[in-house]
Amino acid sequence: MGQGFRRVRWPVRLALSAVMMLSATARAHDGPENRIFSSGFNFAETTGEELFTNVCQGCHMPDAGGASGAGVYPSLVADKNLEARGYPVYLVLNGRRAMPPFGEMMTDAQIAAVVNYLRTHFGNAYDDAVTANEVRDARR
């Protein structure tokens, strides 16, 4: 895994006309001016914040507070389940129940980055950082 992904900041790489068009429609939404989009099977985002914003918040929501419908996406705010760092690493790698697995779409470094981001934000303050090597060892 890992070396093959392309990092693309759309629409910066698009033709000039598309970039000009962006300014016309940029007010139509509340998102960032430039957003990273992946171009293949691997996520192009690299930092923990980028990964959380572009992936995790889809279910866990921008404030990490989770959501509830017929089932639940758990809150990650001040989350005791993040204390043992192997647990979030395992879940991001393999998924469980409503949580999809990301092991095939994220590198060891990406998974370490997003777990470390979660464990130091949203009311979590665990200072023992996960390393990419730990993630590699956790892969089945």
Partner: peptide, 16 residues
Amino acid sequence: PNSYEFTAMSPAERVA
């Protein structure tokens, strides 16, 4: 990845 990236946006941003 793009499916997750679009899921993570607000509906208005997805449309835009």
